[in-house]
């Protein structure tokens, strides 16, 4: 089975000043699947995600991406490899426009010296609008401030950004927190549509109904270890809740 795994996590360890947050986690994530990651606060799921997205580095163990061993020193390494993370708040700057947010850190440049250069603003505006249309989000102007969008629209923009940069794996960390019911439906719809586009999704949520609604496989963590790893059809909400 490991042949079609896009991410292979082997015996991952992480300590925080004496606390053993990850105790040898191993996990295969298959290409194109939607994986639901559940667990209580402090179970280690955020640590695992932070390591996969490059914000933190493991103290032991290894990660392979598309069959090659990788070490992500920072978020940019992970993004360049094709792993994009969408956080509940952290992925957008409210005081900046949609177009500028789309390209933070990856601005198309007309000319540059030493990595600093003039942005191609027309291309940014056009590609931003196209990317939004691609996820069926119809906003009027790429110059609107992200702070004026609803929570669901913001997550839509974040997802459009990840799609635009052809990410292969999308990590969604509590993307439905603090959203109204209708907005939540929309975001869950986005997640379901990733499968059709062949994008691997890792979906983290407190809400077990949401996880069951849009994933193929559930991985539950408790106290830094994987305690359950089953396909959705082979398990039940009660079983998952029992192990947590």
């Amino acid at each position: 089975m490991s042949g079609d795994a896009i991410i292979e996590v082997r015996d991952l360890h992480k300590w925080y000043s004496g606390v053993h947050a990850l105790k040898g986690v191993s996990l295969d994530i298959r290409r194109g699947e939607a994986l639901g990651l559940v667990g209580d606060n402090g179970a280690g799921k955020s640590t695992l995600i932070n390591i996969l997205s490059g914000t933190q580095q493991p103290d032991g163990g290894s990660i392979s991406f598309e069959g090659r061993k990788v070490q992500f020193g920072n978020p940019r390494d992970a993004m360049d490899a094709g792993i994009e993370t969408i956080y509940q708040y952290n992925s957008m700057v409210p005081t900046m426009s949609i177009a500028r947010n789309m390209f933070i850190g990856r601005e198309p440049l007309k000319a540059s010296i030493f990595g600093v250069g003039v942005m191609d603003r027309r291309r940014m505006a056009e590609e931003a609008m196209q990317a939004l249309r691609d996820v069926d989000l119809h906003l009027r102007s790429p110059d609107a401030l992200v702070g004026e969008l609803s929570g669901g629209q913001r997550q839509g923009v974040a997802i459009a950004r990840a799609m635009h940069f052809k990410s292969k794996v999308m990590i969604l960390d509590e993307p439905t927190n603090h959203l109204a019911v209708k907005e939540t439906e929309k975001v869950l719809g986005f997640i379901k549509s990733l499968k059709a586009m062949g994008i691997t999704a890792i979906f983290i949520s407190h809400n077990i109904h949401h996880v069951f609604d849009c994933t193929d496989r559930i991985v539950a963590m408790a106290l830094g270890e994987v305690v359950l790893d089953k396909r959705v059809e082979d398990t039940s909400m009660d079983e998952v809740l029992d192990v947590l």
């Binding site: 997205s53 914000t55 978020p75 993004m79 993370t85 956080y87 708040y89 952290n90 992925s91 957008m92 700057v93 409210p94 005081t95 900046m96 500028r100 390209f103 933070i104 850190g105 601005e107 942005m119």
Partner: peptide, 16 residues
């Protein structure tokens, strides 16, 4: 763009 992002919302700038 980075200056504005850094001052506007530091966690987002870092995560990008």
């Amino acid at each position: 763009n980075w200056v504005r992002a850094t001052g506007g919302f530091l966690p987002a700038a870092q995560s990008m």
